[in-house]
Simulated assay, not measured.
Amino acid sequence: MASIQNYPEEKFTEAAHDWDLERLYKDLELSKRQVAPHKRKGLTDIEKLHLRGLLCANSPDEIAKKLYKNSRGLNTELSKTIYRYVETLTNRLTNTLENWRDIYKWLEESGYKARSSSSVPSHAGANPKPQESVSEIPVSNNSDFVGREEAIAHLNKLVNEGAKVILIQAEGGIGKTTLAKKWFELQGLEYLELRVGSTPQNLNSVEDWLRVKLRDYFKENPEENFMIMLEQLKTQLQIIKIGVLIDNLEPALINGKFIEPQHSYYVELLTVLAHHSVH
């Protein structure tokens, strides 16, 4: 008979074959500090257990059954812990998770699923390549994305003219984020996504976002000081060509200006992204 102490480690262990669990645990620990700073630091064994269950494509009901738990209670626990942590980690708005399968999808999109070495972005080469013109790729090859040829062409024009930072402004629900993501896709560009937050009181930390991206995407040890981390980011962007999507900026603004204490973080980040030497 297994002891209760070892019980969490004996379930859903196959997740370790397909996912970078150690890195995911560490990053979710940072998210947990933002979501629930009053709770114990680090993921608990039970939180890790529930996460592995979801990563093994088990529904909450299936997890509850395998763990001999009450299904309703498990769903409540997930909604207070793992669901919120993953939303924060993947820069999504709070309570936007609609289905438990989103956990699997979002974390896979964020690069936590095990990948072959050939799919890891290459950062080799010390000298930056000249900025290339964006290609005029047709946008009508996707039946779910039509009628945006003019918008795509306008983005291409701005980039070809040397624009580094572009604001897409329109009413909510018009498809601003979809347009930006489609442009990156058409150009064959990877991009880092920073979701700002849902309200001025619930803004995601730019500093934490930068720290995670330096460590996990660029494979660089982030410094403690924010300004030094920005220099690290700038150096990387002078070497490789990659996009940055800052989504849902409105909550960080009042009358067109960044609110405190976010002001300096966003201004400095945008200053780096707009620098003539970065790709």
Rank of each mutant, 00 (worst) to 15 (best):
V159I: 15
Y25S: 00
D18P: 04
L253T: 03
L74H: 03
R148H: 02
E29T: 14
D27N: 07
Y191F: 15
S122C: 01
E109F: 13
N91H: 12
V86R: 00
W106V: 08
S135I: 07
T81G: 05
K157D: 13
K105R: 15
R52E: 04
E47H: 08
M227D: 11
G243H: 03
F184K: 07
E14R: 10
L214D: 09
N225Q: 12
D216N: 14
Y104C: 05
N255F: 05
N6P: 00
E14C: 08
D102C: 14
S117E: 11
L30Q: 08
V278M: 02
H275A: 11
T271I: 01
E224N: 10
T44K: 10
K69N: 03
E224D: 14
E190A: 05
V206T: 08
P138F: 09
F218I: 06
T81V: 04
L97A: 10
E109M: 08
G172I: 08
V272G: 02
H17G: 07
E224C: 05
R101T: 14
N127S: 07
N58T: 03
G162H: 06
V272I: 15
F184V: 07
S118K: 03
L24H: 01
Q238K: 12
V206P: 10
W209F: 13
N91L: 05
T94M: 04
F145P: 03
V86A: 05
Q262N: 13
T81W: 06
A170S: 15
A114D: 11
E150Y: 01
K80T: 03
L93W: 10
G162Y: 06
D61S: 13
S198M: 07
